[in-house]
Design a protein around this nucleic acid. Structure first.
Lengths: 189, 189
DNA sequence: TAGGTTGCCTAAAACCTTTAGGCAAATACA
DNA sequence: TGTATTTGCCTAAAGGTTTTAGGCAACCTA
């Protein structure tokens, strides 16, 4: 009988495509098996179950995001770095809404530790070196930036800005302007 | 046969409790029927199906959130209002993680229009009247604030800050300080 | 107390998830 | 090249979920 040639990585990859096309909550063993042209039970050779499948897609997404962020940050600093980094989040989520939804999953601690999430927060911290923040304030600023990126992108990708006035892209650049000035005038106590 | 006395509202209410205790993704017709002490099919008298059930919980959460926000905003302005408003989000999400997850659902347009989401964005705009932003900048600032609140609270409620250094509460007040100064020094073009 | 409404039931069809066990294609190795 | 092992996919089956259809009895109304 002809084989489809699946591997764990390939299954996660196809799952990510399915997530982007149909929504992350449509990513189930049975839907994925259909898309791979394989019987459901066959997936269980590659993946431990539905939850494991979704976690693998989340990790894949976080790694892709971290890779792109690293590339965007190379050779940039200060405002340029901030904007490039932020746009990686936004572009990724708009291009890959299913993967973005996957990346929002709550991961257990050591899965998270092995994922791109750590690299992303390290890069955020590196980005802040282009601004003159006191050491003690950096952790707070990292969290604020992470919140803005995650929050904005989830709202926009989720259609939260769809039916209101200004173009989201316009607001986005204004928001980044705002963050840049905030980082230059950070209220240290 | 003794009746349980369910109504559509009550079902949504019990669903919200279940979401907070077990996680929003555990809210299914069968799990909810068990908790209500009723057979699964009986739920379908009150709710059109699993998706409808989840949407009703989302709307319930958004309405609760908007009610609390309105109360917090009453009689406050400027920095006080900002902090009180922001804390409504944070306190609500930490106290009701399942409802918060529900509130993140993507709603179709006119469901969203009838939910507390509209009121929340109107209140955000009202809050900005305490700061001196040019009319054209307000829409951008509304979106930035919404992003920070949503993003922060999703990260914290999802455990994103669990295993890193400073207390989240400490970072939160510093982040709000930051937003306050940003709104006072908004870079109008 | 008769009549209609409605809340809950049982039954059943169609699906999904997961485990167990088997065959044959790929691979490793003598 | 032929044999042994691994492994990718299969069928079968058990148990759970979602949803629809149809029925009975408890509640409200008059």
């Amino acid at each position: 009988m002809a084989r489809a040639g699946l591997t764990t990585e390939l299954v996660a990859q196809v799952g990510a495509e399915l997530a982007d096309e149909a929504g992350f909550d449509q990513v189930t063993p049975s839907a994925l098996a259909r898309r791979c042209g394989v019987k459901v039970a066959s997936l269980y050779s590659h993946v431990a179950g539905g939850h494991d499948l979704r976690v693998r897609i989340a990790v894949l997404a976080l790694d892709e995001l971290a890779d792109r962020a690293a590339e965007a940050l190379a050779g940039r600093a200060g405002r340029d770095a901030l904007i490039a980094f932020a746009n990686v989040y936004r572009d990724y989520a708009l291009a890959h809404p299913g993967r973005w939804a996957a990346a929002q999953m709550r991961l257990d601690r050591d899965t998270a530790a092995k994922s791109g999430a750590i690299r992303l927060s390290q890069m955020t911290r590196a980005l802040l070196r282009g601004y003159d923040l006191p050491e003690a304030e950096q952790a707070h600023a990292v969290r604020l930036l992470g919140s803005v990126f995650n929050g904005w992108v989830s709202l926009e990708a989720g259609g939260g800005f769809s039916h209101s006035d200004p173009e989201p892209a316009e607001s986005w650049t204004r928001a980044l302007d705002g963050l840049d000035t905030l980082l230059r005038n950070w209220p240290s106590r």
